[in-house]
C-alpha cells in the first residue's frame, strides 16, 4: 500500500474529517508572505510616495485662495461694523473667504478654507480676548490679526485676502497672499513691484484708501 492510497474509513470518520478540515484551515491561515514579499511591497509604497512628491511639487494641488492669474478687484461690502464678519468669495467664485472687523477697527481678510482638512473657518467673537477664527471640525484656531495658527492641528496659517477700505466705508478685495506671506509680498508678487500700493501696504493688515 502506498502512502498516497486512500486510507480505509475509520469508525469515527466524521470526527476525523472535522479534525482534518480544522488542520487544513489552520495551515491555510498561515501567512505565505515572505519578508522578500514585504520588501517588494515597501518598495512599491516608496515609489508611490516619490511619485506623489514630484506631483505635488509640479503643482497638482490647488492652493486655496490663490488665483491662477491676476485677481480681480472686487467690492465685497458697503460697510463692515466692528465685531462683525462677512463671508464672501474671492478671488474665484469657488474660493471661500471671510472678512473680519475687530473691535478696535482693524479689518482683516482671510481664506475661509482651513489649512488642515479644508473645513470652513468661522469668526467667533466670543472666543479669546478679541475673537478668533475658529475651525469647528478639529478645533483649529487662527489669530484674527495675523492668520497664524494659535491652536489645533492646522499645519500653516490662513492665506490672506488683501482688503482696502474706501472713505465711504466700502470694503474692496484687491489681491491675495499665501500662507506665511505678508500682504505686501502677496500684492507685489501679483501686481508687480512698480504698483503704487506695493510699498504702501508694508506693515499694515489693511489699507484705508483716500482715493477711488
Amino acid at each position: 500500500m502506498s502512502v498516497t492510497d486512500p486510507q480505509p474509513p475509520a469508525p469515527d470518520a466524521a470526527r476525523t474529517d472535522a479534525a482534518r478540515e480544522a488542520l487544513h484551515d489552520r495551515i491555510a491561515a498561515d501567512s505565505l508572505t515572505t519578508r522578500r514579499d514585504y520588501l517588494r511591497i515597501v518598495a512599491t509604497v516608496s515609489g508611490g510616495l516619490a511619485v506623489g512628491g514630484v506631483a505635488v511639487a509640479s503643482g497638482i494641488l490647488q492652493r486655496h485662495g490663490d488665483p491662477d492669474g491676476l485677481p480681480a478687484i472686487k467690492k465685497i461690502a458697503d460697510r463692515i461694523e466692528p465685531g462683525e464678519s462677512l463671508a464672501f468669495r474671492y478671488p474665484g467664485d469657488e474660493d471661500r473667504a471671510i472678512a473680519v472687523r475687530m473691535d478696535d477697527g482693524t479689518l482683516a481678510g482671510y481664506s475661509a478654507v482651513c489649512t488642515h482638512l479644508a473645513c470652513a473657518v468661522l469668526w467667533r467673537r466670543d472666543r479669546g480676548s478679541e475673537g478668533e477664527l475658529y475651525c469647528p471640525c478639529h478645533e483649529g484656531v487662527f489669530d484674527a490679526r495675523t492668520g497664524e495658527v494659535t491652536a489645533g492641528p492646522p499645519p500653516r496659517g490662513l492665506p490672506k485676502v488683501i482688503l482696502i477700505e474706501q472713505v465711504d466705508g466700502s470694503v474692496w478685495a484687491i489681491g491675495t497672499a499665501r500662507s506665511g506671506e505678508s500682504l505686501q509680498e502677496g500684492y507685489c508678487r501679483q501686481r508687480g513691484e512698480g504698483s503704487p500700493l506695493c510699498t504702501r501696504l508694508e506693515g499694515g493688515a489693511t489699507e484705508r484708501s483716500e482715493g477711488a
Partner: peptide, 14 residues
C-alpha cells in the same frame, strides 16, 4: 517628507 513637500507647496515655496 511628503508632508513637508505639501506644506511648502501650499505656502508658495516651490
Amino acid at each position: 517628507g511628503l508632508t513637508v513637500v505639501v506644506d511648502e507647496w501650499m505656502s508658495g515655496n516651490t
